[in-house]
Design a protein around this nucleic acid. Structure first.
Length: 189
DNA sequence: CAATAGATCATCT
DNA sequence: GATGATCTATTGC
């Protein structure tokens, strides 16, 4: 596997990072998956973003150095993984919404007993954190160092990027900030 | 198939 | 004290 992306990869607008992450490989321990769906959250202008009001204990990492993880608990039960983008002080981030499982599939199945097939293992933000064993312990982790890392695709590929409004939010519900690999069967519904 | 309810808690008002 | 960047099971056509 090639080296993780350098810090500079993450140091640009959240929408750019969201598109660039499609097709890349997220690795945690012995499990990995190809990122097939992302959403951008912009920060102060974006009322759907947790960081829109400014720094709080929870949103602190999003105002920090790019290339770190922001993991939070949603609805009291599930955790969601975000990649911090943009220069320090600018709180853009990217929610990872779906993965195509690559390595450690038997382990993922064990962590997700309800899943019917490979498609259901990580085709949603709460599912992929369970499948890869990512929890709030990983909040603030550095994607350039590990054990949680993101790598370029193993082989070059051309993908077609689909765009739509984001899922499950109330504010700014019509902003086209969700990106996915067109036609991929591991994208969430 | 589509719609809906329930689980469950950290975070912010 | 209200509110979610969700998922699953269940109900109703």
């Amino acid at each position: 596997m090639s080296a993780p992306f350098p810090r500079a990869f993450y140091n640009r607008p959240a929408t750019d990072v969201a598109r660039a992450l499609l097709g890349t490989v997220l690795v945690h321990g012995t499990t990995s998956g190809r990122i097939v769906e992302t959403e951008a959250y912009l920060g102060l202008q974006d009322r759907a973003a947790h960081s829109w009001r400014g720094i709080t204990p929870r949103t602190r990492v999003m105002f920090g150095e790019p290339g770190h993880a922001y993991v939070y608990l949603i609805y009291g039960m599930y955790e969601c993984l975000n990649v911090v983008a943009e220069p320090e002080g600018s709180p853009g981030c990217v929610l990872i919404r779906a993965l195509e499982p690559l390595e450690g599939i038997s382990r993922m199945k064990r962590r997700r007993p309800g899943a019917r097939g490979i498609e259901d293992l990580a085709n949603g933000p709460g599912k992929l954190t369970l499948a890869l064993g990512i929890t709030r312990r990983e909040n603030g982790a550095d994607f350039t160092r590990g054990p949680l890392t993101i790598h370029p695709p193993a082989s070059p590929e051309k993908i077609e990027i689909g765009v739509s409004p984001r899922i499950g939010i109330k504010h700014c519900a019509d902003w086209p900030l969700r990106f996915f690999i067109q036609g991929n069967r591991f994208v969430s519904r």
